[in-house]
Design a protein around this nucleic acid. Structure first.
Length: 543
RNA sequence: GCUCCCGUAGUUCAAUGGAUAGAACAAAGGUGUUCUAAGCCUUUGAUGUAGGUUCGAUUCCUGCCGGGAGCACCA
């Protein structure tokens, strides 16, 4: 039974308006009740009446069994408060749904490919990648919580100048092949490329040779380096709880992209300009971009066209979500328009989402550690810091990962995140460990309890916790609709804060209403478990 | 120059057009036989600026100021 729907119907009838114009919101202050509507204020002007009087009039007509109170407040809000029984029933619903609590079926039978990680071969993941990984994973799970079937995919470069530089460096350095050495080799190659003419020629030759793939010795080195660097990526993904279904590389998308460009030229989608093949975005209010260089090599844009064809061949899907840094927003608009003229059915499926940049706030940090902080080193630093407080290594890692993910997922994905290494390493207050700790406490209470909650006596008053727990599914749905996991983070923080307050104020085991409180604690635990699952934040057994 | 995004406490972030703009960190003070103090409780503190739309604007529109990103053969 849809409570909000019934409420909406009753209000619409009482006000004499169509149901579609009646909106509800949760009042900010719990004292104001569970739901509020502004219908009286909206109607007051056209009916030329006083909003508060109209509100009183409407309120008086509403009689529903699940409401304990209907009142008018402020400039003309009508506030609705549920009866005691509603909250008690909610707790029972939560406990019976368990793992499914908060989920919905709005996207059942929908197949979605989501592209995020974006790991390049021959490069290490840096802290910026952690943003994409954390947000992408949370989005994937959020969508799975709406019944969608989701495949996770990473698209990255394994050809191009950066690879040639790294391979050149590896040949010169002659060290044992490790992810760190590859990083060192790249830096060496990049430097030589700038400063040494013969090195530059050699690297350019390597670049072409890699594209051609005919030099067997070189390709052996290429695949060894690719394997080692991708293994390091997989290790980080394991720690971060992401299991990809597929890696796609530019070496696969490039040839297909080139064919699509040819196709586009025939259709008149692309034109030649200054020797290059371009798409004139101006006709769509955008800008011109190059798809094929005058040397005849594909640009990133062309490769992107090929990527969607690879996805189609891989798995028949309804939506293709691509998460990238926000600097690609304008670029994606152009690619999508171009694709729409060649393969409109593919373009329609694309949803491009972006995350901001990860910046370091402390100049001193940047200079101390070089300009990039690798994902690995950040995780290691945090684990080390947290290790002393933690019961074991595994927990320390869970806490560290939770802290990093929380700091990314607490805010809207589009904006830049100023990553203050000192503060982000903090595990106090508003943080991943705060949520984890609340869950550990709740689980401990449940484990230590001996009481059977079947004979629970219901207290007369309603705990604040009960007033927000039932909202979890709405929060999930809201977050799903907007692709914004941070709403879940914010909500869970509120639940955890209320639970910690409850824990400090009330004696639970052996206290008054013990059975009922345990039911409530179980509902909190279920909500935190499911919410943390969505965010991809691990839930330690103890802390 | 053109296009897009963003300006909220000292700092990092919230706020489907609504009620007294929420947190956390930082600062100051409290809290230990009730279950884990990674907790809890107090106090101080903010919507860049000028207009407009609206019963009501942090939110929508316009100008200005300030910051960021993109704008042809990189990805």
């Amino acid at each position: 039974m849809n409570i909000v729907g019934e409420l909406q119907k009753a209000v619409a009838q009482a006000a004499g308006v169509d149901i579609s114009v009646v909106y509800f919101e949760h009042p900010q202050d719990l004292e104001h009740g569970d739901y509020a509507t502004n219908i009286a204020m909206a109607l007051a002007k056209e009916r030329r009446v006083n909003p508060k009087e109209l509100a009183e009039e409407i309120a008086a007509k509403i009689k529903l069994s699940f409401l304990s109170k209907v009142s008018v407040a402020g400039p003309g809000f009508i506030n609705f408060t549920f009866s005691r029984d509603f909250y008690t029933q909610s707790l029972k619903v939560i406990s019976s749904l368990g793992r499914l609590w908060g989920s919905n079926t709005s996207r059942v039978d929908t197949k979605i490919i989501i592209e995020y990680v974006n790991a390049n071969a021959f490069k290490q993941l840096h802290i910026g990648h952690l943003m994409g990984i954390s947000i992408g994973e949370a989005l994937s799970r959020l969508l799975e919580f709406s019944g969608a079937e989701v495949k996770r995919e990473s698209y990255g470069g394994d050809v191009g100048p950066h690879v040639a530089k790294a391979l050149y460096g590896l040949r010169e350095l002659k060290k044992e092949l490790t992810p760190e050495v590859i990083g060192e080799a790249y830096a060496y190659g990049a430097k030589e490329y700038e400063e040494n003419d013969s090195a530059k020629k050699e690297i350019d030759a390597l670049n072409k040779a890699i594209y051609l793939g005919e030099d067997k010795e070189l390709m052996k080195e290429h695949s060894a380096g690719k394997d080692i660097s991708m293994k390091a990526v997989s290790d980080i993904l394991d720690v971060f709880g992401t299991k990809l279904d597929r890696f796609i590389f530019e070496s696969e998308s490039a040839p297909i992209g080139m064919k699509i460009v040819e196709e586009g030229i025939k259709k008149g989608v692309f034109v030649e300009s200054d020797g290059a093949i371009v798409y004139e975005g101006e006709k769509k209010g955008l800008h011109t971009r190059v798809f094929r260089t005058k040397q005849g090599t594909p640009t990133y844009e062309a490769k992107e066209l090929g990527l969607e064809t690879i996805k189609d061949a891989w798995w028949e899907h309804d939506q293709s979500i691509i998460l990238t840094g926000k600097e690609q927003i304008e670029y994606f608009k152009v690619v999508k328009e171009a694709l729409a003229e060649i393969h409109p059915e593919q373009a329609k499926k694309i949803t491009h989402l972006s995350n901001g940049l990860m910046k370091l706030s402390e100049g001193k940090m940047a200079s101390r550690m070089g300009n990039i902080i690798t994902a690995k080193s950040l995780i290691e630093d945090l684990v080390e810091k947290v290790r002393k407080q933690s019961p074991d290594d595994a927990t320390a890692q869970q806490v560290a990962v939770g802290a990093i993910k929380y700091s990314i997922l607490k805010q809207q994905a589009g904006g830049d995140i100023v990553f203050d290494v000192e503060k982000s390493l903090s595990t106090e207050g508003d943080s991943g460990p705060y949520l984890q700790y609340a869950l550990v406490r709740a689980r401990k209470l449940l484990a230590d309890s001996t009481k059977d909650d079947a004979d629970a006596v219901t207290p007369e008053s309603v705990y604040d916790l009960e007033k927000i727990l039932y909202r979890f599914p709405e929060v999930v749905e809201f977050a799903q609709g907007r692709y914004e996991p941070h709403h879940v983070t914010q909500y869970l923080t509120e639940v955890a804060a209320m639970f910690n307050r409850f824990y400090a104020q009330e004696k639970i085991l052996g206290g008054e209403y013990e059975g009922y409180k345990l039911l409530l604690v179980a509902a909190v635990a279920t909500t935190l478990e499911n919410g943390l699952w969505i965010l991809g934040i691990p839930a330690p057994e103890r802390m």
